[in-house]
Design a protein around this nucleic acid. Structure first.
Lengths: 207, 207
DNA sequence: TAGGTTTCTGACTGTTCAGTACACAACGGT
DNA sequence: ACCGTTGTGTACTGAACAGTCAGAAACCTA
């Protein structure tokens, strides 16, 4: 029996996330968010408790999407695990893959992991952001490590290798490609990095 | 025949760099720089042409230090090349090594590559910063690739591996460890990532 | 169709920002 | 000792900032 809100919170948070990705947190003003989302300042404060609240909720939404997509892309039968890892790595170095049909952003810098970018910019002085970013990383690490274990079970990766170590290494490479991509290196270069990394994965010693 | 300046520009740029690393570019105000360096606003504008000028000159100084240290740490006789690579990798994941006697910064996030951090924050809209960051990366890539070639000559790395690809991969890992470190992961974790990466370097097939 | 409740809008506030202007201080040659 | 030149600090300016608020608008129930 009251006026319903005329916007979709998810849509608003998406637009805000895009803005934060493009301009950074401190580089984005409330007016920027207002322009990007179409919401007035009052609505932004009422619905999300201001700039910082928008960031936290946008990151939470990002985390949710990540937690939904990554396991879907990496989980599966042991036989295809290595190939799934390969495909994921190749896509990830071109930007965080969050849905099967979303193409990489035109600007590689804006396609970098949202959580990582925010953590690097303000994580040192914002423990909530740091924690959320850590959660994102953990979800990925768990999914990648599980995929590594599957590949080990299938005899595609050296069973003596520590799957968690390998997962951390792969994710570090993916995060690093966000940075290298921000420098403006070509997609071909990023693909080459991913292929090099994949080629170095430890294969079983005996067949 | 005029009053000499009473500050050391290098010292000022160092302090400004520290401030930028800690708070980011947009998170740092001219007053912050003034407080960190002890210089008044007038002197800052006269000597460095304002905030953006300070950033550019601080990055140029960083580039110079990088270009001096990295080759020194990585160049040398072929016999020790692999070990130099190992040592460099281990130190680099804990923060950009710029001098032999400088210990890693207390906060890992502030020890991340200055150029990379600025490029990720404002590189998309600041081509000068992007270019300077790219220069920093190139210097490192050249030094690392040369070290890889030396290790190959010494028979420690598979001669069929592309040294440039390998250098890019190693640097991507190092940049990624800046991000992972910013999440708050322990130094032990970073060391473990570096060791895993090192262990996966392609060894010669035949002895 | 009227009332009550919530959302929306845009103007307003006090603060902080980057950059400038200017007065004063310090130095070196004369 | 003086004077031109340059460095230094501070006060100032207009713009941009985050956050608030009161009134208008939209909707549901009755």
């Amino acid at each position: 029996m009251a006026r319903p809100r005329s916007f979709d919170p998810d849509h608003v948070l998406h637009a805000a996330e895009r803005q934060f990705r493009t301009s950074g947190y401190n580089g984005t003003s409330v007016d920027d968010i207002s322009a990007a989302t179409g919401l007035g300042r009052g609505s932004l404060y009422a619905a999300f408790d201001g700039k910082h609240g928008v960031l936290l909720q946008a990151m939470a939404g990002y985390f949710a999407r990540l937690g939904q997509f990554a396991p879907k892309a990496l989980a599966g039968p042991d036989e295809g695990a290595l190939e799934r890892l390969h495909a994921y790595l190749l896509r990830a170095v071109h930007g965080v893959p969050l849905a099967a049909d979303v193409p990489p952003a035109p600007d590689r810098a804006a396609a970098a992991c949202f959580a990582a970018k925010m953590a690097l910019e303000i994580g040192a002085s914002d423990s909530e952001v740091k924690r959320l970013a850590n959660d994102c990383f953990s979800v990925l690490a768990t999914a990648v490590a599980e995929c590594v274990r599957a590949a080990q079970r299938n005899g595609d990766i050296d069973p003596d290798a520590d799957p968690d170590d390998l997962a951390y290494l792969l994710l570090t490479i993916i995060r690093g490609s966000d940075v290298v991509g921000a420098y403006g290196h070509s997609p071909a270069r990023l693909t080459s990095i991913a292929e090099s990394a994949f080629a170095l994965l430890p294969r079983p010693r005996h067949r």
